[in-house]
Nucleic acid binder design. Structure first.
Lengths: 145, 145
DNA sequence: CTTATTGCAAAATCTTTGCACATTG
DNA sequence: CAATGTGCAAAGATTTTGCAATAAG
């Protein structure tokens, strides 16, 4: 049994072909572009001659999200109105989005994370998840339109 | 000339009736519920006997956002697929969303903000905006379904 | 075998656009 | 007045749903 099926089963999901395949796609996405929309996935599948209903893709992604295997994002104007999904493997990380190019960088900062937990606790909550997106621009770029 | 018209003009926008009114609505929204969707605004206007096209509301909100007077959010499953808008007055703040109730709390943390700037700079960027949403749950709540 | 999942097509949102009319500076 | 903004209705885009067929444990 492969890595994907194991992850699905461990998460309490039936290891179906569709789930396995989408999981693989997310895993194998290039580091520079591993935030995929439902449609990206649909297109990539078609490119390799496979066919999956777009509704199934949405359902699978939602299931994976519920199981904590995938994160869903709504970044910015650049991707507004569309969800982007990425694998939730390894450590949680946050995102920086360049408002000019739409480029997405990831980073990780233990201090910010600790601080978030502290703030939540102060209000009587525990952290379930976090989502930090810093909108940035190349330093020194002109502000004028 | 009132506060709203002044803010609009200062931001380089024509002080139209629609913009002024929406600005007011956002200003006067209750602190506990000041994140309004386009439809919330539409409904509130109708309740007070006013009428404004939903498309105009979207256009106004987008204009206000572009002018930096309003922030647009996409919080969570609770509000997924819908944009929520809030006035961008005063200091920037971040949000905590309870995954169980959908309740939104705001907080402000200079340390996190400073850290964000530092991280952006480290990558050669400057911060244009930030959006931190911590998904939380009441501490001690059962994890089981 | 029994239940959960998928495909398809249709529906449901939410948001944007085109164009004529109204308003603003 | 010239330029911008607004209303309406219609189009777009993304995501969800109903239901019969299929696959998984």
């Amino acid at each position: 049994m492969n890595r994907e099926r194991r992850a699905l089963t461990r998460a309490g999901l039936k290891a179906t072909a569709a789930r396995e395949r989408i999981f693989q796609l997310l895993e194998s996405a290039l580091p520079e572009r591993h935030h995929l929309s439902a449609d990206d996935i649909y297109a990539r599948l078609r490119q390799s001659g496979e066919r999956m209903g777009i509704s199934s893709i949405y359902r699978v992604l939602t299931d994976l999200e519920d199981a904590g295997l995938v994160h869903r994002h709504h970044f910015d104007r650049h991707t507004m109105g569309r969800s982007l999904f990425e694998l939730a493997d390894g450590a949680e990380h946050d995102h920086m989005v360049c408002v000019e190019t739409g480029r997405i960088l990831e980073f990780q900062d233990p201090l910010i994370e600790a601080r978030q937990r502290a703030i939540a606790e102060r209000h009587g909550f525990e952290v379930v998840g976090r989502k930090l997106v810093i909108r940035v621009r190349r330093a020194g770029a002109d502000r004028a339109p």
